[in-house]
Design a protein around this nucleic acid. Structure first.
Lengths: 199, 199
DNA sequence: ACAGCACTAGAACGAACGCTCTACTCAATA
DNA sequence: TATTGAGTAGAGCGTTCGTTCTAGTGCTGT
């Protein structure tokens, strides 16, 4: 077997959580689709379902961060890079049949009232992604506060556009939001080297 | 009793769906919190859980549309109106203890693979809300295509900002996104120069 | 009075849930 | 050979799920 049983469980759980949410995903389903048994799942994750979910979300978070980092680094201009991110998300979403969206949103929304580890893992993921965008803007010469506000906006807008794209089964929301975000970023100072400051 | 049993079921289901999603909300819980019995629920909704959910989402959609319309109409300038919307959402979110977010996102994400009536109701809700924003922009003198793209961006960004605000338990994402959206809107042909009094 | 209807009330069903439990395989050691 | 520990395998626990079912209540028209 190429991947270990533990890894297969985490990867499968991540995919199922992304598509069905926390409550909608059963331990038995995870075991079955990971080609593992119930005993194996509880062997590697004595903490039960919640522990599996946290590991899965952390895995998804790292995976999405890698995608984000790669897309951001591929373009020198931050505005173009943000637009490129949206395009990449649109492409992957379409290829998955509109089901593989943001890996943490579904799980996050289901555990809102609680202060569960799942909730915390989702919050950490959002924070990490936002930081990636913020750093890209800082490297592009943006003012610290502008970079922070733009990063929040970019991540939130991409998040929302992905949901909209999934629900409407169309790339258009992501494409449109990508364009508008690029325009917004460019409205600060115009090009890569100048610093904004209209705040 | 002031409200009818049917209405209590729909309103209760709407609130629970918003907070717990579709899978996480049980028919028995709906009945109990609506002070109705299982028999009543199945009397009014012979189609079962899915029928209740669709009615609840349609209710939430109308309710949110009313809030949106009111916030948009309160300001003449579209950019200021959008910012005001975000502020209103932030306020209500904080007051609810960060649990009453977008009324359809959670349910939408759980039924993505399917072409269930729930999915369609969520898609219709998003479309309606976007149309409200688009009409506001058109009344503000915006070009048709600009209005459409901006409306998509505004709804998506607000959607995402609401989720981010819920997860991080902070108004800041909504406040920030509101400011940035206003800036984006203003970047099209200046601020409220045309169509001051729209009534 | 009585039939008819809208609605209330909740017991009960099969299925699925998360989780625990015992039994097993098998390679590595002594 | 015997023992040990990691990992596999799945039966079965108690609970809850969505749904169905029968029984009963209260109001209306005749």
């Amino acid at each position: 077997m190429q991947t270990s049983t533990r890894d297969r469980i985490v990867i499968t759980a991540a995919r199922l959580l992304q598509r069905q949410g926390y409550v909608g995903t059963g331990i038995k389903q995870i075991a079955q689709e990971a080609q593992a048994t119930l005993g194996s799942v509880y062997h590697f994750f004595p903490g039960g379902k919640e522990t599996v979910a946290v590991a899965a979300i952390e895995h998804s978070s790292r995976e999405f961060a890698a995608l984000l980092r790669k897309a951001l680094d591929a373009e020198a201009d931050p505005a173009t890079a943000v637009d490129s991110c949206a395009g990449q998300l649109a492409e992957e979403l379409r290829e998955s049949g509109w089901i593989d969206g943001c890996p943490v949103t579904a799980a996050a929304l289901e555990t809102l009232g609680t202060d569960s580890p799942i909730q915390q893992a989702c919050a950490a993921a959002l924070r990490d992604w936002e930081e990636l965008v913020r750093d890209k803007l800082l490297r592009g010469g943006f003012d610290a506060q502008d970079a922070r506000e733009l990063a929040t906006t970019v991540i939130s807008a991409l998040e929302g556009a992905e949901v909209t794209a999934q629900v409407t089964r169309s790339e258009e929301p992501l494409r449109t939001v990508g364009r508008q975000l690029a325009r917004l970023v460019r409205s600060y100072g115009g090009s890569a080297q100048s610093a904004g400051g209209t705040g």
